[in-house]
Design a protein around this nucleic acid. Structure first.
Lengths: 241, 241
DNA sequence: TCCACCCTTACGGGGCGTCACAGTCA
DNA sequence: TTGACTGTGACGCCCCGTAAGGGTGG
């Protein structure tokens, strides 16, 4: 007798909620292959497989309607869907990159002068939307020479502090991270993070998690297992103080 | 007397719809600074400025609620919002990159064997979600040596065709793009695009637009103004045939 | 009998699109 | 008067979260 899952078991296996499975049943994308005589849902092994496919495709950014087509219609052109999705993802990635650069500019401008030149920002974003700008040199087209210099210098000061700290840590990996010097280094890290993230401890923690997970690639503070290990231990020591 | 805009004029200026402005009025994020005696909305110059700010921030990925806070509460910490948004964007960018790689793998697998090994794909995406994978070498952890080889070879064949075409075009920029040879080259481009994008002309056009706009950075068919100019002319000639 | 689980039904939310119906401006 | 524009009101979409009120399984 093949194993049947209750709705609770299944949603735990897929890390989703009961409500979601109810919904999937409702819209006919995943119906339980059996029901008990009192209409409790019972899912089979192949239901589980299908659910995993659904969750996977959803993570890739497909709508439930598209997923239904892809999985139901055997003739449906999976390949084309995948390729369309790939183009869409590339475009979105590119948009994000540009917007991120633009926000960076905004941050620098605000931190150095406390005012935001909205008309400039609006212009830049308008141009981004019309895709007039290549990813790298948008600011060269939309800022004056002085503004560019200012922007670059400000960014440079920032990165140099991080670079310095990174070098210091790498040069002292042999020392005890839980000793005085290690704690000093981690305090520097915190100071820089707080400077960058407005003294919000939760943001600082988020940055640390991102760094550890390698989510945000940092050119001037690259991901390095040994540095992570060192700082982690130093963090511990600091928290225990 | 300062210029006042009707709702129609304003929505055209901002490339949005009347409904959107109604909605913005309704949720108190942008109320017209005047109404006629019959309650038609009249927007001022500063309303327009505010609308542009709203649209800009929306493009950066802020919710209308956040935007309201940023613009209304003078004391509100814009800087922190920007930085939070920057982290969020970085995370999203990274997720997209990984998913795109994964889809690429799926496409290759499907094109070479016509079947998809779902259990493998599900595993990979599960790992992506748990952020266990560094961006570059996910497949090395989740595929067998044979699969990796197969994957890489298939990808290589593809890229070599594009590389070859690119070189051919660059070597012949001096020739007439609207002559026989130019048309031959653009036909090759179309053939490759159709091979990559399942013979869908609309997808092919989309790819061409993306290439021209530099939206999708291609290592093996890089963006090059001269190549774009050449191919554009050749396209013209082909269409006029 | 207990209690964790299950069912169905229904509302909400974000950011509008899309009617319907009626009044208004040139 | 015509016809383009404007107003308000209301429902729908997508993907569920969150509850209400009651029945079931072990």
């Amino acid at each position: 007798m093949p194993k049947l899952y209750t709705i609770n078991e299944l949603c735990h296996l897929a890390s989703i909620t009961v409500r979601t499975l109810h919904y999937y049943d409702e819209i006919n994308i995943l119906k339980p292959s059996q029901r008990t005589h009192k209409s409790h849902r019972r899912y089979s092994e192949s239901d589980l497989l299908r659910l995993q496919q659904i969750v996977t495709l959803k993570h890739m950014g497909f709508s439930l309607e598209k997923i239904k087509q892809i999985l139901n219609e055997h003739k449906f052109n999976i390949l084309e869907s995948l390729k369309i999705q790939l183009i869409a993802l590339s475009e979105e990635e590119n948009r994000i990159k540009k917007v991120a650069q633009c926000i960076n500019y905004l941050i620098n401008q605000h931190e150095s002068r406390e005012i935001i030149d909205w008309s400039k920002v609006v212009n830049i974003v308008e141009a981004l939307k019309r895709k007039e700008i290549d990813s790298q040199e948008w600011y060269e087209k939309y800022l004056t020479a002085m503004e560019i210099q200012h922007f670059k210098q400000f960014a440079k000061k920032r990165t140099q502090k991080w670079k310095l700290l990174f070098k210091q840590i790498k040069d002292n990996l042999a020392t005890d991270p839980q000793g005085d010097f290690g704690i000093q280094l981690v305090k520097k890290w915190i100071a820089l993070a707080d400077e960058a993230y407005a003294n919000r401890p939760n943001l600082r923690d988020k940055l640390w998690e991102s760094y550890k997970a390698g989510v945000i690639p940092h050119r001037y503070f690259p991901r390095d297992e040994r540095v992570i290990a060192y700082l982690s231990k130093a963090f511990e020591a600091l928290n225990n103080q």
